[in-house]
Amino acid sequence: MKRILPPWVRPRTLIAVAAAAAILAILPLVHGNRYWHNQLTETLLAIATALAWNWLGGYLGQVSFGHAAMFGLGGFIAGRMQVSLGVPMIAAWIVAGVIAGLYALVWGHPTLRLRGPYFSIATIGVGEATRLICTYWVWLTGGSSGMSLPVQVQLKYQLYWYALALALVALAVSYALRRSPLGLALLAIKSDVDAAGDVGVSAVRLQDLVLFLSGMTMGVCGGFYASYYSFIEPGDMFGFARSISFVLMGVIGGIGTIAGPAIGAVIFVLLRNSLIATYPQLYLGLYGLLLIFVILFEPLGLTGLYVRILRRARPDLGVTGMAAEESAVPATGAGAARVEQREAK
């Protein structure tokens, strides 16, 4: 086992994730509840998007308020390929994902070089511009009346397992991007792009790579969404509320942590469903309030809260203060402990 895996993969983590995946895979066969089945599918999709957003927003610190652009583009391209060209579903998702990733590079390659908040500001413009263009691009999107895909009840049920696979792939990429040697380079870029360059880190290449992966995953998720709902329309797919939802999931769970955004996604889906039911007009404002609230009181979200509690309850573990301040919480904290163990041997 050890020899097949790269040294930075912790077998314990792998086993835990595999066990959770196995349980999730057989769960629908046990409970048979259609409502919960759909809720779980949506949650798994939300997890994949939250993790993909976090690669750029969390690991590299480039917060995007325009990721719905790639989600929407992926959705409509995958939909159009299936409806008009008869491309099989999975192939359509993948092609749509690649195109969405390339689209992200087109606007992101120049804007990622902007320092400070300017990248984030640019993403707002990109998101809105993409929404407008696609709303008027009737051939691709069907315009404001949207696009319908053939409804297949059996497919909608099966898509649960596809969503599970999508979330697992996103989780694996999250883990690899953080724990592999590449992860340190990403953190260095986040901390100080110029100093990273001075020690040989190619920031441009890594930023572009992460952006492409993030955009591509968003595109695939958009394609999934189209197949799952069998009806999509530009106002919703490209909406600012959707872009904000990615940010919010990351922030709730803990920006820059490996699995935090996944937990954020679970909370978010629960929250959204109750909010939309109760305050259909207000939810965007409520998103904003929630964002402000979390950033003010616990910038690392639930993961930060967890570390804080852990430090109180188990001071013997020696979870360091700096780790709590900067993203890497469980990653570097545990990583350092692991190095110690290895050295002790």
């Binding site: 040697p181 340190l184 380079a185 953190l187 260095a188 986040k190 901390s191 100080d192 110029d194 100093a195 990273a196 001075d198 020690v199 040989g200 880190v201 190619s202 700096m322 900067e326 993203s327 890497a328 570097t332 350092a336 190095v339």
Partner: peptide
């Protein structure tokens, strides 16, 4: 050719050894 900075610029989010490991891994 590698320089140091007049005003130190450590990677604050990396541990001391990780600061050096990332440099070694790249160069």
């Amino acid at each position: 050719v590698v320089r140091t900075h007049q005003i130190v610029r450590p990677f604050a989010n990396l541990t001391v050894i990780e600061n050096c490991t990332v440099a070694a891994a790249q160069c």
